[in-house]
Design a protein around this nucleic acid. Structure first.
Lengths: 136, 136
DNA sequence: GCTTGACCCTGTAGTTGCTACAGGGTGCAT
DNA sequence: ATGCACCCTGTAGCAACTACAGGGTCAAGC
């Protein structure tokens, strides 16, 4: 299939597919006589793997490691689990951080009573960390 | 004060301060005879405002609008409230998205039973969205 | 046979918010 | 006069794309 079909089949931007090829995440496909990229099923499932992993927030480098692993079926699965577990921990840390931030923001937003900027509680709170209840 | 002092006073990297000046977020300060930047209290509090807002996740452009507002004390505070509220909503959306993602990841990680990559449930799950319980 | 439009190609530059040099100048203490 | 901490400008790098510019290819319809 041509790049446009692969793009539709996987929900990936065409430019992104070419980008993945350039950085070596996808192998360079064969070319037609007109120099068009020509993909097969192996490409499609590899790209689906990449997209799905990206959607789950894995970095390109993590995905590279995961792909290396799955390219070598004799290797130990533990490494995949280690990568995924580390990523899960990062996501949990990020959530915790955003929750603190959200609470602080909600407090700040709730202070607005209208009026002019000179009296604005929102601007005041942003200017001075001492109005905050948490370290962030 | 010189840039190093301002850096220590606000916990901002020196390069970042110069970057903010370059993009017009901080006004260019006076210079000493040796061409060193020389800052006053107004600079320090403006930079604190910027840093605090960045810590709360506001973008540079949002901060620019907030600073414009506070530079013009007669303007209506509603705009500041609108920016902050919109940002709060974004943070809440991001949290919700990360929670879905975390649950999916936790499910994937939990499937690992060791063994070789060929049988790896983690790699299998990443390759095929149909293993997922949610849209993400 | 010629045009139109959809598709494809390469290469480069932009995005966000910094951070990290390289290659130089300044100021003060020893 | 020599070391060291500090300052300057300008440019390039990071992640993960995205968006052109400027060109080639191909099938359909007139």
């Amino acid at each position: 299939m041509k790049i446009g079909e692969l793009s539709r089949a996987t929900g990936t931007n065409i430019e992104t597919i070419r980008y993945y090829e350039r950085i070596g995440l996808l192998p360079a496909p064969d070319r037609t006589a007109a120099n068009y990229r020509s993909y097969g099923d192996a490409h499609r499932s590899r790209l689906s793997f990449v997209r799905h992993s990206r959607d789950l927030g894995f970095t390109i480098e993590e995905i590279r490691s995961l792909l290396d692993l799955s390219d070598d079926p004799a290797r130990d699965c533990g490494e995949a689990d280690r990568i995924a577990t580390a990523h899960l921990e990062q996501v949990e840390a990020k959530i915790a951080q955003l929750v603190v931030l959200r609470d602080e923001l909600a407090r700040i937003v709730g202070r607005c009573r209208g009026g002019v900027a000179a009296d604005c509680r929102v601007i005041e709170a942003l200017g001075d960390h001492r109005h905050c209840e948490s370290q962030h």
